[in-house]
Each structure stands twice: as structure tokens, then as C-alpha cells.
Design a protein around this nucleic acid. Structure first.
Lengths: 230, 230
DNA sequence: GTCTATATGTAGATAGAC
DNA sequence: GTCTATCTACATATAGAC
């Protein structure tokens, strides 16, 4: 039998609550799923709390109750899968390291692969999440959210790349990773564009290997480029 | 707020009008400038016609009169500089061609350079325009606008690159250009990110040469990569 | 073309019953 | 926790005087 041991000494923990019921957790998950879809589809302002509530099948008041307001709901929606994604990325990195000496392509595959795989195999919610991240990434207003959710892991991968190129300027590596993230998000969200521009309209454009090849060659070139500043 | 997004593209709706007065043209330009700033800053739904009117220094009614409604105003705002940008890009391409045999780097410089230069030298309106284009590019709802404003020129540059690599799969080239556009927009809009991730907070991250080096190497790698599909 | 006033709908948020 | 009803603010859009 398990029961809760609680201490009341710490005033900061005064707002500790009972463990949420299974129903409550389910409701929260439904709301987050709905928010993920609607925010991804229409952006922050384009989405309405009412529409999110309707998709989740709950009254609008519950969305405020569980989400903490629209802006906080947005932040929580981004943060939820960011934690999972970071764990997958760091796990992939360690798996690569255990398999042998790291290469730039391996590091980039560890970075992009998990997101890529989840979008392809993880169901429509992950596909929506990719579009949501693209919104966050494209809009400087969400910089605090991006910093909270993605910067620590990004910095970790910059460290790994920097270790592979000891003489490289760290800023160039960071720039290269920013470009690569942009390319990755373009891939994950804009398959239509690849098809439309070359007239084939085909589906076969999503290819992790080619994305990694692009990013790895690009980063190496950016590191070694002697380009002058304007 | 949610509503239908519609565009006035039907040629049957064309009526012949008198030549607009100088004052009218000036008012239209002020409204487009204001819309460019506000749409870039807050996205389509986050922007309000009232805020645009306030920034332009005109009554809100005039924005509707000249802009044709919010959605149509958005489309016109994107299209205005797109025409100028396309002309600059195609001009740069012909200048390069006249100077000697084209290279991939030269083609990419002709593509990215004019936008890059306008953002750096063309004043705050061009900087806002880059953020606006990033919004358009990140949101599939604006696909019709992107197709109208950017696809013809993009297809032209794909042709040029395809001519340089006669044996290359055209779809791979298109994919590489999509990645490169994403990287270019990330560069033009997210200087903060480059600084924040490597801890320097510096400004010197904008460098056309390095961007082109990144994109050129990436595209070549994507073309030649033997990567299997998943 | 310009500007004021206003029509009409919807937004986020909350109070309070259950 | 859940849900109904509602408050207040602000959105787009237009009618009509000048």
C-alpha cells in the first residue's frame, strides 16, 4: 500500500495539491493534444480557446482552468513534447558515441533523427508539433519559450560539434546549427513545397539521410569558409 | 478571431479607374509600410487593422478602402516587395552570367544576395519584410501567396542549378533550395539566435559569404548523396 | 479620397452552481 | 474537477457625411 507523506514546513510548497485523478490527467492530455493541433494549424492568435475546447470536447472554462490562460497553455503545449524530444536526442547521441568515434553526420543524425522519426511514425500529433515548433522558431515573440525548451539541448550539440572541430570558431558552428534547424523544420513542415517547386507533386521528398548530408556539408563549409564580413 | 481568408484575384472584378492622385498613392504606401511592420511583428491574426491604421496615421476605414480587407491587404503587402525582389534577383543572375561561367555559389549569391543586401542596407522596412516572409514561409495557410509571389523566381533558379548539374535529380535540387531558403530566412530574421546559443551575444553573425558556402556545399551534398529512402 | 460613427460578431477570462 | 452563463474588450467591416 502506498500513501503520501507530506510535510508542511516549506512555505514555498504551500500550494502543493493532491495527486490529480486519472480523469483529470486525461482531460489535461486531451486539452494539450487539441491545443497542439489548433495552435499548429492557425498560430497563437489565430487559435481560439473556444476552438481548442471544442476539439478537446470540454467546455472552454476547463481550458483556462487546466491551461492557466491562453499564453501559458501555449507554453505548456510546446514544452510537453520538448522534454521528450530532448531525451530522445540525448539518448541517440549517447548511443552513437557508444558505437564508435563520433562524426559530424552522426551528431546531426542524433539531433534530427528523433524528431524526424516521431513525425513520420508518431502519429498526427507529432506532425502538428513540428508545425508548432516552426511557428515558435519563426516568431521572435516566442524566444523565451524557445530558450527554455530547446536551447539547452542545442548548446549540448554545439559542444559535441565543437569537440569534433577543435580549431573552429564556435560562433560559426552555432550559425551552422541554426541553419540546419531551419532546414530540418522546413523539411518536417513543408513537404508540399518540395513537390510544388519541381512539378512532380510527389511524396518521396522526406529523407533524413539527405537532410543530414546537406547539413553536414553545409556546416563543414561554413566552418572552413574564409568569407569576409560585409 | 477566425474568419474566411479570401483574395480578390478574380479578373472579372477589375474595373477601370482614374489614375490615383499623388496623395492617394502616398496614403497607400503609408498603409502598406505600416502593414508590413505590424504583420511582421505580430503575424496575421495578431495584427489588427486598427493598429495598422494608427501606425500609418490614417483612420481605420481608409485601410479597408485602400487595402481591400485585411486578408487582401496582407497579400498586397507580401506582393509589393516580392516584385522588386524578383527583379533584383534575376538582374543579379544575369550580371553573374555576363561575368563568366556560372557556378553554384554564384547562382546562390544571386538568389540570396539581393535580399540580404536590402535587409542590411534598405532600412527597417526591408528588415520587417524579411520577418513577414518568414511568417508566410512557415505557415501553410499562406501557400497561395507564396506560390504567387516566390515560386516563379524560385523555379527559375532551380533551372539554373539544374543546368549546372545535368545528371542531378531535379527533386533533390528543389529540396536543397527549400533548405537554403529556410536557412536564409533564419539568417535574416534570427540573428538573436546565433548570438544566444554560443553565449557571445554578438552582432557579427550576418555573413552572406558563409551562408552561401553553407547552402552551396549542402546542395552539392544533397545532389550526390546516395541516401536511401526510409 | 477621407473620415466619423457604428453595426455585428467573437475574443479571453471568470463567477458560481454542482 | 467540471460546466453554464456571462462580463468586458476589441475585432473586422461598412454606411454615409464631407
Amino acid at each position: 500500500m502506498q500513501y503520501r507523506i507530506m510535510f508542511e514546513q516549506d512555505p514555498r510548497n504551500k500550494q502543493r495539491r493532491r495527486a490529480p485523478s486519472a480523469r483529470s490527467l486525461q482531460t489535461r492530455a486531451r486539452i494539450l493534444d487539441a491545443a497542439e493541433r489548433i495552435f499548429a494549424e492557425r498560430g497563437f492568435e489565430g487559435a481560439s480557446v473556444r476552438d481548442i475546447a471544442a476539439r478537446a470536447g470540454v467546455p472552454a472554462g476547463l481550458v483556462h482552468h487546466h491551461g492557466g490562460g491562453k499564453a501559458e497553455l501555449f507554453r505548456r503545449t510546446v514544452a510537453r513534447r520538448a522534454d521528450e524530444l530532448s531525451a530522445l536526442r540525448l539518448g541517440a547521441l549517447e548511443t552513437c558515441r557508444a558505437a564508435g568515434p563520433l562524426t559530424l553526420s552522426a551528431v546531426l543524425t542524433a539531433f534530427a533523427g528523433p524528431f524526424f522519426h516521431q513525425v513520420r511514425q508518431g502519429g498526427p500529433q507529432w506532425s502538428a508539433y513540428a508545425r508548432l515548433v516552426a511557428h515558435v522558431s519563426a516568431d521572435p515573440r516566442w524566444r523565451p519559450i524557445a530558450a527554455e525548451c530547446f536551447d539547452p539541448t542545442a548548446a549540448r550539440f554545439i559542444d559535441e560539434i565543437a569537440a569534433l572541430f577543435p580549431d573552429a570558431d564556435r560562433q560559426r558552428i552555432a550559425t551552422g546549427l541554426v541553419y540546419s534547424v531551419a532546414a530540418m523544420l522546413a523539411h518536417l513542415t513543408s513537404g508540399w513545397r518540395v513537390g510544388a517547386l519541381d512539378g512532380s507533386g510527389g511524396e518521396g521528398a522526406t529523407d533524413l539521410d539527405r537532410l543530414v548530408a546537406y547539413c553536414a556539408a553545409g556546416i563543414e563549409a561554413a566552418i572552413h569558409c574564409a568569407g569576409k564580413s560585409e
